[in-house]
Simulated scan of single mutants.
Amino acid sequence: MGILSWIIFGLIAGAIAKFILPGRDPGGIIVTILIGVVGGLLGGWISSQFGGQGVTGFSVMSFVWAVIGSLILLIAYRLVFNRSRS
């Protein structure tokens, strides 16, 4: 996948993760893209640890793993930034 594909894939996966876990998040579209792209990498790594192929392109399972990775990153992101504000 090209860099533009990863950005679009990350934006969609990050937006769905933010939709599943609603709340007030610092950052805008750039943070959403970064969470989605890194979440896709994390989801691919987790998938490969369970015997899957990882995130190999635009497929349903790649997208599911990217959203799962994005959810994990979003939870960690909120824990770090909410703790620093307190």
Rank of each mutant, 00 (worst) to 15 (best):
M1T: 13
G2L: 10
G2F: 03
I3T: 01
I3Y: 12
I3M: 12
I3P: 00
L4F: 09
S5R: 15
W6K: 09
I7R: 09
I7G: 03
I8Y: 14
I8A: 13
I8T: 06
I8K: 00
F9P: 08
F9H: 12
F9K: 06
F9R: 09
G10R: 02
L11A: 02
I12S: 09
A13M: 07
G14Y: 07
G14M: 09
A15C: 02
A17F: 06
K18N: 04
F19H: 15
F19L: 06
I20L: 15
I20M: 09
I20G: 13
L21A: 14
L21S: 10
L21R: 04
P22K: 07
P22A: 08
G23I: 00
R24I: 01
G27M: 00
G27T: 13
G27D: 10
G28L: 07
G28I: 00
G28K: 11
I30C: 01
V31I: 15
T32D: 02
I33C: 06
I33E: 08
L34F: 13
V37H: 08
V37N: 10
V38C: 11
V38T: 10
V38K: 01
G39L: 13
G39R: 03
G39F: 01
L41E: 10
L41N: 03
L42P: 12
L42W: 02
G43C: 11
G44S: 11
G44E: 07
G44P: 05
I46E: 03
I46P: 01
S48A: 15
S48P: 02
Q49C: 03
Q49G: 00
F50T: 04
F50A: 15
F50G: 03
G51N: 07
Q53H: 08
V55Q: 09
G57Y: 03
F58Y: 08
F58H: 13
S59Y: 01
S59V: 09
S59N: 14
V60Y: 05
M61K: 15
M61F: 07
S62V: 06
S62D: 15
V64W: 00
W65P: 00
W65S: 01
V67I: 10
V67Q: 13
V67W: 10
I68Y: 02
I68K: 05
G69T: 02
G69N: 11
S70N: 14
S70F: 11
S70T: 11
L71E: 05
I72R: 03
I72W: 02
L74M: 04
L74F: 08
A76Q: 06
A76H: 04
Y77T: 05
Y77N: 15
Y77L: 14
R78Y: 08
R78D: 07
R78L: 03
R78V: 12
L79G: 05
L79K: 10
L79R: 08
V80W: 09
F81S: 11
F81Y: 13
N82M: 09
R83S: 14
R83N: 12
S84Q: 15
S84W: 11
S84T: 14
S86Q: 06
